[in-house]
Design a protein around this nucleic acid. Structure first.
Length: 345
DNA sequence: CAACCGTGGCA
DNA sequence: TTGCCAAGGTT
C-alpha cells in the first residue's frame, strides 16, 4: 500500500458532500470548481456555502458572470473579504468569455494565466475539473506533507520542498480525488492542534508521528506584530439618508462603499483635528463607543461622528443611501461595525 | 520576496 | 481578550 492508495481508500469512505463537489466517479464542472476555489481562498467552507449558492443562482454560467456589472459582483461579495478576489473573479470571467469562447482552458499553465488564478487554484481546477495530474498545495497539504515527511524548513521557504515531495505521491488515475482527499484529511484529521493520528490513514507513513511530534509541523517563520491604527469616521445624515463614499478601485477594500473618515494611521490616540476631515459642514457629534476590527496586518479602532446635514450638498463621488437600507448596501464588515454605533430608532 | 489584502470562529 | 488560522494571489 502506498500513501496515496491509503489516502484514497480513506477518502472513498469519508467523502464529504459539498455543493461544488461532483458525484463519485463524475468530473467537476470547471466553472463550479473555479468559483468555489476562489471563494475558498483563505476562507472557511461554512462561510463560503451561502455565497456560492447565491452566485450560482444569480450567474448560472461563467458568461453570465462576465456580463454582470462589476458593482453587482462586489455587492454580492460584500462580507467575504479580500475584495481583490471579487475584482479578479470578474476579470477572469471576462477573459474566459472573451479569449476562450466561454469555456475554461483545460491545462494548468493556461489556467495559471487567468486573473486571480495562482499556483494553487490552477492546479486545483486542472486536477478536479479536468483530471490533470497537477500538484495541489494549499495550507492543508502543507501541514499534511510537512508532517508526513517531517520537513524542517520553515514556511514559506519550505513550500518548494513540500510541493516536490507531494508531486511524487500524485496518482495518475485520480489526481482530483487525491487533492481533495489531502485537503479533507488536513481539515478533519491532520489538524493544526491535537491531530487525530489514531484515525489517520497515513499514520503508518508519517515521520512526524513516528517521532512523536506531529504538532511541531509545519515549522513557520515568526510573525510580525500588528500595529493599531485609529480613525474617526463620519455619518452625514440628511432626511433619513446617510452619505457613503466609493473607495478607490485598488488597495484596501478597493472598489467597495464605505464611510468617509480621517486617514487610517498608526497613532497612540484618536486624531484631535478630526472635524477638519468631515465630508460636509454640520454640527458633528462623536457617538458613544469604539468599533474594533482587525485586518490582515493592522488593528483598527474607530470612533464615529454624526451630523444632520442641511443646505446645499455637493459631493461628486458620494452616494446617499436610506439608513434603513444600509444592510443591503454591500458594506464591508468593518463599516457595518461602525454603522452599528449609530443609535437605531 | 516581503508586504499587502478581510473576515469569522475558536481555544 | 488575544492570537491563531482557513481550500492564496498580487505586487
Amino acid at each position: 500500500m502506498t500513501p496515496a492508495s491509503r489516502l484514497l481508500a480513506w477518502y472513498d469512505r469519508h467523502r464529504r458532500d459539498l455543493p461544488w463537489r461532483a458525484k463519485p466517479g463524475e468530473v467537476g464542472d470547471a466553472y463550479h470548481v473555479w468559483l468555489s476555489e476562489v471563494m475558498l481562498q483563505q476562507t472557511t467552507v461554512a462561510t463560503v456555502k451561502g455565497y456560492y449558492a447565491d452566485f450560482l443562482n444569480r450567474w448560472p454560467k461563467v458568461t453570465d458572470l462576465a456580463n454582470a456589472p462589476l458593482e453587482d459582483v462586489l455587492k454580492a461579495w460584500a462580507g467575504l473579504g479580500y475584495y481583490a478576489r471579487a475584482r479578479n473573479l470578474h476579470k477572469c470571467a471576462e477573459a474566459v468569455a472573451r479569449d476562450h469562447g466561454g469555456r475554461f482552458p483545460e491545462t494548468e499553465a493556461a489556467l495559471r494565466a487567468l486573473p486571480g488564478v495562482g499556483d494553487y487554484t490552477a492546479a486545483a481546477v486542472a486536477a478536479i475539473a479536468f483530471g490533470e495530474p497537477a500538484t495541489v498545495v494549499d495550507g492543508n497539504v502543507e501541514r499534511v506533507m510537512s508532517r508526513l515527511f517531517r520537513i524542517e524548513t520553515p514556511l514559506p521557504k519550505g513550500k518548494a520542498e513540500i510541493k516536490t515531495r507531494t508531486a511524487t505521491l500524485v496518482p495518475r488515475d485520480r489526481p482530483g480525488d487525491f487533492a481533495q482527499a489531502c485537503m479533507d484529511l488536513g481539515s478533519s484529521i491532520c489538524t493544526p492542534k491535537k491531530p487525530k493520528c489514531l484515525l489517520c490513514p497515513l499514520q503508518p507513513d508519517c515521520a512526524a508521528h513516528a517521532a512523536g511530534e506531529p504538532e511541531r509541523f509545519p515549522v513557520k517563520a515568526p510573525k510580525k506584530e500588528k500595529p493599531t491604527r485609529r480613525t474617526v469616521a463620519f455619518m452625514p445624515t440628511h432626511k433619513g439618508h446617510v452619505l457613503l463614499e466609493r473607495r478607490p478601485p485598488k488597495g484596501l477594500l478597493g472598489g467597495m462603499p464605505g464611510l468617509y473618515s480621517t486617514p487610517w494611521e498608526a497613532q497612540a490616540d484618536f486624531p484631535d483635528n478630526w472635524a477638519a476631515h468631515a465630508p460636509a459642514t454640520g454640527d458633528w457629534q462623536l457617538l458613544d463607543g469604539i468599533a474594533r476590527h482587525t485586518f490582515t496586518h493592522f488593528h483598527l479602532e474607530t470612533r464615529v461622528a454624526a451630523a444632520e446635514i442641511s443646505g446645499r450638498i455637493n459631493l461628486p463621488s458620494g452616494e446617499w443611501v436610506p439608513i434603513e437600507d444600509l444592510d443591503a448596501a454591500g458594506l464591508p464588515t468593518v463599516f457595518v461595525k461602525m454603522v452599528a454605533l449609530y443609535p437605531s430608532p
